[in-house]
Design a protein around this nucleic acid. Structure first.
Lengths: 341, 341
DNA sequence: TCCAAAGATGTTAACGCTAACATCATCCGG
DNA sequence: CCGGATGATGTTAGCGTTAACATCTTTGGA
């Protein structure tokens, strides 16, 4: 209606003119300032509606110094763990009225993480979450821009940054103890890649339980989290069937690979070998046999990390750094049984 | 060194002062403007380095009207498909020098998608990718803010928006034909939920092949993409073993559920029943038996969608809308065999 | 009834940057 | 050796918003 064929979108001044008020009053209406007459408010609202006005958050951010945007740096968001964590982060952030700008690293190294953090800082994010599961990446948090609120997820850190993570050591202990409780003499371990903090934590927990029980610590096999690497480890372990009666695998995907290898080699799970995984991906319950595993509540980790970050932002950075641990949960299914013979 | 304990970060003017030039010259250096003397450039660069200056992209965006940020609206980025697509999008965007701001919807409906698009528009994104696998969501693209470049991924659309997607119908045909070629009389189908465009496309392809071959079209079972729903469908199908010899399942996760149900019921795959899945998730190769499936190249979809979107942005919106189709790929593994008897 | 306090609105000045134009120094060919 | 073209730099004016202050209008109690 009308010759309203302006090419560029309306701005506050346009709304103000149409409503017959000053642009500041429009701003007040938009920001729920109390001192605006009800009648004026509705007049402004009507004008906004009529023009299809949308405020320009970029201009707002320039003056307020807050973009209400959070940065997230992550690694391979294709994997179930990172994907779920980032999802939890995004949900929690949006519930709190924040946007999320994501940088997904292809390879993770200190320089890459640093670059990502730098970009996000230029972009004016109010805070940064680094999903830093590797030692090298975690170290990048040492040279964060001054005054930038940040939180590390699944990271390890001694320095001055808050950390939220699942208790990997505890999870590994749960898994290993369960197998020992079933009467197995000892427990083998297929670990994740060396540089990963989660892999280290799981190794630590596994070793601790074995040591405490005075059991021999078998040679460790190392995978790369992929089903294929688990399959390869499985082939090796199958060759030792008889010696090996229980395996704690560092994640469910590798456990699937083991299961496949054992099936091919005619090794029965759990009759001959018991297996415990880690993560509890949605598929695990339907493996053959259904996988006993350790559940990580990634969603909770994401949410808690946003809690911590927002608290830090709102406190103006005057808050002590926190270390928040989310407990893992043991999930009993059908891939474990009492030791044979 | 020195009393440089200013609380707030340095701005261009600070750099200019230190380098003994005007702020505009600093801007020129930062934007690689040619007309700057080499000596001046290095002086400015040194000053930038010394102060630890980072440019403020918010201020820049305000004047240039470009934020170099792309918005992504997606649904449940926890699933392998959306997660991989979004990952591809993010990588391609960053390679092109763009940031990505993500909104992950919990539930997908027209209003939700519209809100998300609205938020992103206020935030000043240069374009929007909507991963809209559901009819209701795809329709939200009808009321996009005027002049906002956009592309729908895995979406269906007649209107004026570009679409990038995998050819679902073709994929389903590949799967169904393969089973027919193995001598099966007909092929059963476990579909995805009704409102999903992918589910519809797969049903269409399945029906088309059966119809063309003059085969009876069995009653369709419907799942919700989850392994559990596949498990339930599997239980039903197992009860009909003998009648049922071939099943095309709309995704790999449900196929896993079928496999589990069949194992429990003593139905042998592929000896008694052949199964073809869809997606080719990383786990499929290690199912028991390894799953014959249709691979979707989600990464390619993500990349192509960014290609299309950037072309649209750079052309100033004067470009015709494209419809880009990524072909699916048949992956033969061990879950299919010639029909029994 | 009058005045101070509170409420409603307007005016002006940033925020940090780039675009556009202005100015000065330098270069080269006739 | 001069004058216009070119290169190098500076100056000014916004971008669209909120903060801070100024102004005018109400309101309520002595």
């Amino acid at each position: 209606m009308g010759p309203n064929v302006d090419r560029r979108p309306p701005v506050m001044a346009d709304v103000a003119r149409l409503a017959g008020v000053s642009h500041q009053t429009v701003s007040r209406v938009l920001n729920d300032h109390p001192n605006v007459r009800a009648e004026t408010r509705t007049r402004v609202l009507r004008a906004i509606d009529q023009l299809g006005y949308r405020r320009n958050l970029v201009a707002r951010a320039l003056v307020t110094k807050h973009s209400r945007t959070l940065g997230v740096v992550s690694f391979d968001t294709t994997l179930y763990g990172p994907a779920s964590t980032v999802y939890g982060i995004e949900q929690a952030a949006r519930d709190a009225g924040y946007f999320v700008s994501i940088v997904s690293l292809r390879t993770i190294d200190r320089a890459g993480v640093n670059d990502a953090i730098g970009y996000l800082a230029e972009q004016g994010v109010d805070g940064i979450v680094v999903v830093a599961p590797q030692r090298s990446a975690a170290r990048a948090l040492d040279d964060l821009p001054a005054g930038m609120p940040a939180v590390a997820v699944e990271g390890w850190h001694q320095g001055d940054v808050s950390v939220v993570s699942v208790d990997q050591v505890e999870g590994a202990k749960l898994a290993t103890s369960h197998l020992l409780d079933l009467g197995h003499e000892t427990v083998w371990h297929v670990s994740g890649p060396a540089d990963w903090l989660e892999a280290e934590g799981r190794i630590e927990g596994w070793r601790a339980v074995l040591t405490a029980a005075g059991r021999p610590i078998p040679d460790m096999l190392t995978g790369d989290w992929s089903p294929r690497s688990g399959y390869q480890a499985g082939k090796q372990l199958a060759a030792m069937a008889g010696d090996v009666t229980a395996v704690f695998v560092a994640n469910d995907q590798m456990a699937l690979g083991l299961l496949r290898a054992f099936t091919e080699e005619g090794v029965k799970v759990p009759e001959q070998i018991s297996i415990v995984g880690f993560d509890d991906i949605p598929e695990s319950e339907f493996f053959s046999p259904p996988l006993t595993t350790i559940r990580q509540d990634f969603g909770a980790v994401g949410r808690r990390s946003i809690d911590v970050l927002l608290r830090q932002i709102e406190s103006g950075g005057a808050l002590p750094h926190e270390r928040l641990v989310v407990p893992p949960q043991f999930v009993l299914r059908a891939s474990t049984a009492v030791a044979p013979r």
